[in-house]
Amino acid sequence: MDALDLLKSRNSAAKLASPGPSEQELAEIFAAAMRAPDHSRLRPWRFLQIRGAGLSALGDLFAEAALHREPAIGEAELQRFRQQPLRAPLIIVVISCIQEHLKVPRIEQQMSAACAAHGILLATDALGYAGIWRTGSNAFDAHVMAGLGLSANEEIAGFIYIGSRDGRAKPLPALKMADYVKDWR
């Protein structure tokens, strides 16, 4: 696929199934992620791969975090949190690793990690798989971050769910460039 066609056609997939990428394909995906814009070459990101039994463990962590946030939560809602990670054969947790730096502010480091996440999604699509970037309350939850082993200077940029597209791609809306691009003067 032509690079411009990929950039213009990538589309999130909410329904994912097995198989997910092979180890060789994951190496390609991470190589693409690590080419994100990176002022001063800080490499302000790292990635956790979660698959197999780890998906159920992540679901348990999500349920524990939900219980901490809302002690009166019902069992049905806890079960919903437990099932969330099981929607794909692979989840890549993109972590922003914020460093004190005179020239590179926090927001720029967060955006660099976000670009790495986008690189993961683009490479996933280029390899014939599909993905979706999810956040939600778990991405910002201290219990989840601790359970995943994040340091005090780290935060979750997103959970990238990856697998084979289950069903048809949703149609992309037609966007008018004039609605988004203006000349300054």
Rank of each mutant, 00 (worst) to 15 (best):
S12H: 06
V181D: 01
Q109M: 03
I156C: 07
D183V: 08
V144W: 10
W184H: 03
A32D: 02
S56P: 00
Q84F: 10
G119P: 08
E64C: 05
S137P: 14
G149E: 07
W45T: 01
I29P: 05
G167L: 13
K176Y: 10
Q109G: 08
H118V: 11
A178R: 11
I50C: 03
H118L: 08
L78K: 15
G163Q: 03
R10T: 07
P19W: 07
R43G: 04
N153I: 05
R10S: 12
H143G: 04
S112F: 08
A27I: 00
E64N: 15
G149V: 06
K15T: 05
E100V: 12
D179Y: 00
A32W: 08
E154M: 07
H39G: 11
A113K: 01
D125A: 12
L55D: 09
H39I: 02
G136V: 05
G74H: 04
S18H: 05
F47Q: 00
Y180K: 07
I50H: 09
A63Y: 06
G128I: 01
S137G: 12
L121A: 11
L148K: 13
L4S: 10
M111R: 09
G131H: 04
V94R: 01
D60S: 05
T124K: 06
D38Q: 02
A116I: 02
D141C: 15
Q24W: 01
N153W: 11
I50P: 07
C97N: 09
I73N: 02
A152T: 15
E75T: 14
Q49G: 07
R41S: 11
I73E: 06
P71E: 03
A14C: 03
P44N: 06
I156N: 06
G54Y: 11
D38W: 09
A117K: 01
A33W: 08
F30A: 01
H101M: 15
G128N: 03
R106P: 04
P171S: 15
M1A: 10
A130Y: 00
P44G: 07
G128C: 05
S18N: 07
A33H: 09
L7C: 05
